[in-house]
Design a protein around this nucleic acid. Structure first.
Lengths: 216, 216
DNA sequence: TAGATTGTTAATCGATTAACAATC
DNA sequence: TAGATTGTTAATCGATTAACAATC
């Protein structure tokens, strides 16, 4: 707010939730202050990196004392935009959609999936994790009326791009894409890919390398 | 196999599945050769990076002609360990577990979830996406008998570490962790975190920055 | 004051990008 | 041959890590 919004590194940004979680745990133990070293130790990470990351988020500590646990939690949440609650629409009522609709871990982030959309008549009208499943044709109208800004894509890969296009036409500002496909989208729209395939590739390649080493 | 196994960058590794997918598409169009530039254009990426990545995976192209589509697909699959099929055990039969058990996108990677484990008596004995749900106490014995090397964690955060410990005692060599918590594990074990929180943090922080900019 | 920890600047490291030579 | 594209080495860029000054 008072500080100029410097561009912070993507990698740094992605470490923030871990910091938040550690602070949450430490706070629940009744501890009021914590040093970067203590935070870093929990992940076998460099204390300097923690300090830099927190600085980037605009959090301030006190020399000799450390960072105030609750204040720093608030600061991270503020930085990540987790203090404003976000309503989101989810498209795709399959297995993955069901998991996302029912997942409770998004709560600290203030993310609430308020409705699910699908084009399968058998699913429409039912509930998914307590949320109504609606005809995908209703997305646009409802998104505009409710000022929903986040769209979550959990459809098969071949339908991902058209779903994204539809979302953008509906005024969606940010897309969280779980389909294994890169989306093309206009400049200025926030697109975050949550495709699991890179993670699986890393796992299996490392497992293979390990095996190859053992054979040698 | 013939080449020394150089350490390849993590980021490069994670780009491999996209290359494989593009090659798959191009191959299905009947095209036999493809240049790095053509691959790169699909992601608005640098052609040099594609070339470097493929080189790192041990794939070879032909000057003036490009990379042979099918050969390069095979090369990437080989590099990622996708030619050997992997059986995996999944622990946690909740929403997320159901999504993973039913997800078909793991097939190109040769990953098959053969059994699901849980400690909730109501779930045990049922099927999840066609796979049997078993008592978690049976994990160890079955894993050793079936030589299963990959364990997938889809339990709540507070149970993640004990699940990991149990897996490692059972001889599991690689853990794919979907719980939002870093795991501590001995050197040499492959642990890949698929926690969604960093992805969500990136999304919401960027959305907030965008909004802040518009206000100015 | 002394000492611990932050804040900040400098050095290192690695990944990405650019340049150019090799090749079919 | 000429030209397109690979293969490879060099330059740039950015992120991580180290060093040290500032501060309570």
């Amino acid at each position: 707010m008072d500080k100029p919004l410097r561009m912070i590194a993507e990698a740094s940004l992605r470490r923030m939730p871990s910091y938040w979680r550690v602070l949450d745990e430490i706070g629940n133990n009744g501890q009021e202050f914590v040093s970067c070293t203590e935070i870093a130790d929990r992940f076998h990470q460099d204390p300097t990196q923690v300090r830099k990351d927190l600085e980037g988020a605009g959090c301030e500590g006190r020399p000799r004392v450390g960072f105030a646990v609750n204040e720093t939690k608030r600061c991270i949440a503020e930085f990540l935009g987790w203090n404003n609650t976000h309503d989101a629409f989810l498209v795709g009522a399959g297995n993955l959609g069901a998991a996302l609709a029912g997942y409770e871990g998004f709560q600290p982030a203030g993310l609430t999936i308020v409705a699910v959309f699908d084009n399968n008549p058998e699913k429409i009208g039912a509930k998914l994790a307590g949320k109504p499943v609606l005809r995908v044709e209703r997305f646009r109208n409802l998104a505009q009326r409710m000022h929903v800004q986040i769209g979550i894509i959990a459809v098969p890969a071949h339908a991902a791009q058209e779903t994204a296009d539809m979302m953008l036409e509906s005024g969606i500002k940010a897309i969280w894409n779980f389909a294994p496909r890169k989306l093309s989208s206009p400049e200025g729209v926030v697109v975050e890919n949550a495709d699991l395939t890179p993670s699986l590739a890393s796992l299996s390649a490392k497992l293979r390398m390990k095996r190859d080493q053992e054979v040698e």
